[in-house]
Design a protein around this nucleic acid. Structure first.
Lengths: 342, 342
DNA sequence: CAATCGCTTGGTAGCGCTGTCAATATCGGT
DNA sequence: ACCGATATTGACAGCGCTACCAAGCGATTG
């Protein structure tokens, strides 16, 4: 016969209930839905729990209730500053709440993403935050089948799986080019790295703006699948200059590339912006304090993460946001590197 | 009488066992310790699990086995590039293993850290990775009482709680100053932000090196508790110049400050390194591609994370590392910004 | 004053898995 | 052919909590 496996010193809910003089299930309700208890029992359970230093066993809770209090977060990169800000927003929003975060890194692969998604959903998460709107058809299917709030972040687009928060990368890039055109630049190069779907849409925005202005020329575009870096910015900028020596401005799909381009200009003794205007994307902190200061497209990354987490929580608590798709917009930060052409 | 809460479509371990023609406990053993099964049963369980698409219920597993397969990670910041690299190493090491990560952000507060620690340990993590060696006495006590592998990362020091991996911030800073001295600089300023314990030890290293060279002067030191940024680097550098206009070099406790100092030099038309040498710390990617390229102290952040996670796993699998304290060292990357004085 | 309603509270069983130990099968040595 | 040792396998109960109903209770209503 199997022996009992009682753990002696451990404080279980039953102990709290006994001390409070209520049944275990009433004690359980205190943690799940305190309003359902009468004021007297509520106080008794509360003080009993505090006195014993009760800590709920999450595994038992998850097993019995068939759900967890974990919000899954799928992002493509841990190193990218952009996602660090988003994550900070998510963690801040969840801090102090009952929910915790399970983070996974898709490494910019939608197949990896699908695998992780299945892994997550099998554990019945309370909610899910996933990057972008380009999931595989299978991923979409499993997400639509599952019954938990899901927020797609980083961009907005048609047909959200559930909820969505972000901005239009197409419009943002187009606005950056419009700014350069308005400042008097016309031979505007494009530097792109990694070329994930969002970067691709920035390229589309560039192309649209340039085509509208009848200035489009494929020679102006330099892209690579290599992950971005400052060093790469310098290299790509050099490639661009080789292809199109007559450019007067360059739009970089992120700020690392922009910084790399700036340094390459310095190495070549090209004056910025007099001989070469530069505009980046994301508006990382350093853009405002470089010499010259660098123009960029500011995106609301922290707010994106924060709001996404809040949308999940509100849905879980029955206060579903009125608007499932939130466009956080962007703003073109006009600085020295794209000052008006004299 | 309570009704049975059977979930119809769900594939449980019992279903797999039935299809494989074995008992549930044997099927369980297949996942826990496949070698314990005979080759025949092993193959039968494996194919049954695959055929049914069985996914284990982690909550049930945790409840029954009284432990989880979660490794807790406590880091002070999500935005700091340094920790992004460490995290990447941890995630990479655990990718494909049975273990998952629970990440929490202490925001550089050891009280916050203590709170999170208690939260984590209450859920019986498989292991723990914690930043630094400056925990509260209470934190130390609870960690010593708990029975799971713990790795302290980012620095090495005496009396590890369990295991430790990092490097000496004191030695690293001292080596950076020694480099500057060897290059002919002697009036070397110090720029510090955030001033967490590791930064503090870098300051100690600076002080030791300068004192040994009989060059120490408190006027050369500018620090602040404000979180670091490139902008702050410029500001602090300006403060330093105001206090000590005759400096010929500056050591910055991180690369963001160094970059900010570089930009400030450019704004002031001070030639680097001719009029001002700059050395940073961490050797982030951009340091090698700035103009001029910036000297820095390279630290092995990715390896630190990776090895820390591997040390935890090895301990869990009974192959405890021979050496509980690992010093990963550092290297002074000598670049243009600290070229020899002519 | 009985019937009804809503609010609290409790009893019972079970969520899906694994620790414990017993039972059986297999094997080499004498 | 027998014995004990080792490798596999199975039975059972229980990990700590909550879903599900039912019951108790005072208040409300016609």
């Amino acid at each position: 016969m199997a022996r009992k496996r009682i753990t002696p010193g451990k404080i279980r809910l039953a102990e709290v209930a006994k001390l409070a003089g209520v049944s275990p299930i009433t004690a359980s309700r205190f943690f799940r839905n305190p309003e359902a208890l009468s004021a007297g029992k509520r106080a008794r359970v509360e003080s009993a729990a505090k006195e014993l230093g009760y800590v709920p066993n999450l595994a038992a809770r998850a097993l019995a209730s068939q759900r967890t209090e974990v919000i899954g977060v799928l992002i493509p990169s841990l190193t990218n500053n952009v996602f660090a800000d988003v994550l900070r927003g998510i963690y801040d929003a969840l801090d102090g709440s009952r929910y915790s975060i399970q983070l996974a890194n898709t490494r910019y692969s939608i197949l990896q993403e699908e695998r992780l998604l299945r892994l997550f959903l099998a554990q019945k998460p309370a909610g899910l935050i996933i990057t972008g709107i380009n999931q595989t058809a299978d991923s979409r299917r499993v997400m639509e089948a599952v019954d938990c709030p899901i927020v797609q972040i980083m961009e907005v687009g048609p047909s959200p799986i559930d909820m969505m928060i972000g901005f239009s990368h197409f419009d943002a890039a187009k606005a950056a080019i419009a700014h350069l055109l308005a400042q008097g630049y016309w031979r505007i190069g494009f530097l792109g790295a990694r070329m994930d779907p969002r970067v691709q849409r920035r390229l589309d925005g560039y192309r649209a703006a340039m085509t509208e202005a009848a200035l489009f020329d494929p020679q102006l575009i330099v892209t690579t699948a290599i992950p971005t870096s400052v060093t790469l910015g310098g290299t790509l900028f050099a490639d661009l200059l080789a292809k199109a020596p007559d450019i007067d401005a360059v739009f970089c799909v992120n700020d690392d590339l922009a910084l790399g381009a700036l340094f390459e200009c310095k190495r070549r003794h090209m004056a910025v912006p007099e001989q070469m205007a530069i505009v980046g994307f994301n508006d990382l902190e350093f853009m405002a304090s470089s010499e010259p200061t660098l123009s960029s497209v500011r995106t609301n990354r922290y707010e994106m993460g924060r709001n996404a987490a809040m949308m999940v929580i509100e849905t879980l608590e029955g206060r579903r946001p009125a608007e499932p798709v939130v466009d956080l917009g962007f703003s073109v930060m006009e600085r020295q590197s794209s000052a008006r052409r004299s």
